[in-house]
């Protein structure tokens, strides 16, 4: 899923400084699962904002809502009835949700309340880590199911580099060396001969480097 993290509260307060009546909108998708932008975070953020504004003698009225998803027009549409009554929307959705909201409601200022960090997993409660860079051309079948593009700090397709020690990456002793894990996996699967095949220069055109991406499925279009 998409993993996000709340922005520092002062940054948010600064963004909404001039507004007196706003919508704080969460999303029940990925950001709910990673505890960055679900209903609970909407409540906590709204309460925090009210406390801060009360303290500064500049009270603010907040309408709290959490949409099913902010990356689908049908759910964003639900805001149409009341959005005009507010001065701004503070969205706790990922970057995609915030943008889609902006595309739909062109006349109201929109502010992001979270930073969208990566596509990742919940390692355990309270710990998330990155797994996919969405390069658009998956090669996991060749690397024992571990993505070197994402998990090697240098995205080496023919790693490991010379900086790996004790199974950790040179840039941070908390980060596992992806190629150490790939090596271990390939050993376990008895596929080490694959390691010596040179992985060819990658076609990055399916990645962000090829420009903004879109997918069209004729069979699904209405």
């Amino acid at each position: 899923m998409i993993i996000g993290e709340g922005k520092p509260i002062n940054e948010i307060l600064e963004m909404i400084l001039k507004h007196k009546k706003i919508i704080v909108a969460g999303c029940r998708g990925c950001v709910t699962v990673c505890s960055a932008g679900g209903q609970k975070e909407v409540e906590i953020l709204s309460s925090t904002i009210r406390l801060a504004r009360e303290k500064d003698k500049a009270p603010i009225e907040i309408f709290e809502t959490t949409l099913e998803r902010q990356c689908d027009t049908e759910y964003l549409e639900q805001m149409r009835n009341y959005i005009d009554e507010y001065e701004a929307v503070l969205s706790l959705a990922c970057g995609a949700g915030v943008q889609f909201l902006a595309e739909m409601y062109k006349k109201i200022p929109l502010y992001p309340a979270i930073n969208t960090n990566f596509i990742g997993v919940t390692e355990k409660q309270g710990i998330w880590s990155e797994r996919c860079q969405s390069c658009g051309n998956c090669m996991l079948e060749r690397t024992g199911g571990i993505c070197p593009i994402t998990r090697c700090s240098k995205s080496l397709l023919n790693g490991p580099c010379g900086g790996s020690s004790d199974g950790k990456c040179e840039i941070d002793s908390e980060i596992d060396c992806a190629w150490q894990i790939i090596y271990e996996r390939l050993m376990e699967l008895d596929l080490m001969e694959r390691f010596e095949e040179v992985e060819d220069i990658k076609d990055w055109s399916t990645s962000r480097d090829g420009g903004p991406r879109r997918i069209e499925r004729e069979d699904l279009k209405l």
Binding site: E43, I44, S47, L51, E54
Partner: peptide, 11 residues
């Protein structure tokens, strides 16, 4: 006791 209870009490 959730975070929001604590904040609401102050609110």
């Amino acid at each position: 006791v959730d975070l929001i209870y604590l904040l609401k009490t102050f609110e």
